[in-house]
Computed example of a mutant assay.
Amino acid sequence: MLRSLYTLILCSVILFSCHNNNDDDNGSNFIPDITFDTANTINTTLPQYNDLEFPGGTVVLNGYGYNGIVVYYTGNQYYAFEITDPNHVPTNCSVLTIEGGIATCGCDDANSYSIAGGGVPFDGTDVQFSLKPYFVEANGNVIRVYNN
Rank of each mutant, 00 (worst) to 15 (best):
N139V: 12
L15V: 08
I98E: 03
E53I: 05
F135N: 13
P47T: 06
N147L: 04
I83V: 13
I31Y: 00
G63L: 00
Y78P: 10
Y146E: 04
L61C: 02
S94K: 07
D123S: 12
D85C: 15
N92S: 13
I42R: 03
G27A: 06
I34C: 05
Y113Q: 07
N21D: 08
T125I: 08
G101R: 00
G63F: 00
N62D: 06
G56H: 01
T45W: 02
T38H: 07
D85R: 07
T104S: 15
P133S: 10
E137G: 07
I69M: 07
L131V: 11
N50A: 15
Y66M: 14
I14Y: 07
P90M: 11
C107A: 11
N20A: 15
V60Q: 07
G119K: 09
F54L: 12
P133I: 09
Y72E: 09
D25L: 12
A39N: 11
L61S: 03
C11H: 11
M1I: 08
T58N: 02
D23N: 14
T38L: 10
L61T: 03
E137K: 15
N67F: 14
V120M: 11
F54A: 09
V127D: 04
Y113N: 02
Q48Y: 01
F30S: 06
N26R: 13
D25I: 10
N67Q: 14
V127F: 03
E82M: 02
Y146T: 10
E53F: 00
F36V: 00
L10H: 01
S12H: 03
T58M: 01
G100M: 02
C105D: 15
Y146H: 12
T84D: 09
G68I: 11
E99I: 13
N76K: 14
L52V: 11
N76H: 14
Q48W: 01
V60P: 13
F129T: 01
Q128S: 04
V59F: 05
G124F: 01
L2A: 00
A138I: 10
P55V: 14
L46I: 04
T125P: 08
Y79G: 11
S112L: 06
F36P: 00
D51G: 01
S114R: 09
G101P: 01
F135Y: 06
F135S: 15
T45I: 03
V13G: 08
D85F: 07
Q48K: 10
I34S: 03
G68E: 09
C107F: 01
N22G: 00
I14T: 04
G57W: 06
H19N: 07
I42E: 05
G100V: 01
F129P: 03
S17A: 03
F54R: 11
D37S: 14
T91H: 10
I14K: 05
C18I: 13
N43D: 15
A80W: 09
I31H: 00
L8W: 02
C11I: 13
G101W: 04
S94I: 13
I14Q: 03
L131W: 13
D24G: 05
R144V: 05
G106V: 03
C93A: 11
A39M: 07
Q48R: 09
Y134G: 02
I115M: 06
M1F: 11
D33K: 14
I34E: 02
Q48H: 04
I143C: 12
E99F: 09
D37Y: 08
I34D: 00
V142R: 10
A138Y: 06
T7F: 14
